[in-house]
């Protein structure tokens, strides 16, 4: 499946929740479906989307938080999975779109292309619910189950290494940041 397919499939659920995405294709594709004030796009700082998600989830325990991560990003912060597991925010769903590639900088294969199992790493780190899916209906089911389970979940979604024509959108960092903080604090 292409990343845009699962994003479209769960968009109605995302609209009701706090969302943090990584930079590049994922951010641009979610914006192409529709920006919402409670969507935050981490436009650099690779690896820290899941850490920001943890901080947001701890500060807003009554809201569900969805992190849209990538294989290249989470591979930069594998230790963060152990921190996620330690504090186990039950309101956090961590989706890793795994295209086995550093797509935005030339498509170099990541470690998942040579056998690294990110869901296995998350499980070994102590994340209580983990799953790897490669079909759209399986992804949608896993995502809805995670929302319903009320526990920390990492879902690794295998996707094709394709992205949008342009990765840059006209939403400025600060506009996004102030709008987001206002939206989730209210």
């Amino acid at each position: 499946m292409k990343r845009l397919d699962p994003l479209n499939a769960i968009y109605s659920r995302l609209e009701e929740r706090i969302v943090v995405t990584i930079m590049g294709a994922c951010a641009a594709e979610l914006q192409s479906i529709g920006h919402r004030p409670h969507f935050f796009y981490l436009q650099h700082a690779m690896g820290l989307a899941s850490s920001m998600g943890l901080g947001i989830a701890l500060s807003k325990p009554d809201r569900q938080v969805v992190v849209l991560d990538g294989d290249g990003s989470i591979l930069m912060n594998l230790g963060g999975l152990t921190t996620l597991a330690r504090y186990r925010p039950r309101n956090l769903v961590h989706v890793v779109f795994d295209n086995q590639s550093l797509l935005s900088v030339g498509g170099f294969p990541t470690a998942t292309a040579t056998g690294t199992d990110l869901a296995g790493i998350a499980a070994a780190a102590g994340v209580p619910r983990t799953e790897t899916v490669s079909m759209l209906d399986a992804f949608t089911r896993a995502f809805d189950e995670a929302l319903g389970a009320g526990d920390l979940t990492t879902i690794v979604a295998k996707v094709e290494a394709v992205g949008p024509a342009a990765f840059v959108t006209d939403l400025s960092l600060l506009e996004n940041r102030f709008q987001f903080a206002r939206a989730i604090r209210s």
């Binding site: 820290l48 920001m52 943890l54 901080g55 947001i56 912060n77 903080a181 989730i184």
Partner: peptide, 10 residues
């Protein structure tokens, strides 16, 4: 990164 999330959450 965790601190940044905490801040945005208030």
């Amino acid at each position: 990164g965790i601190a940044a999330g905490l801040y945005l959450g208030g």
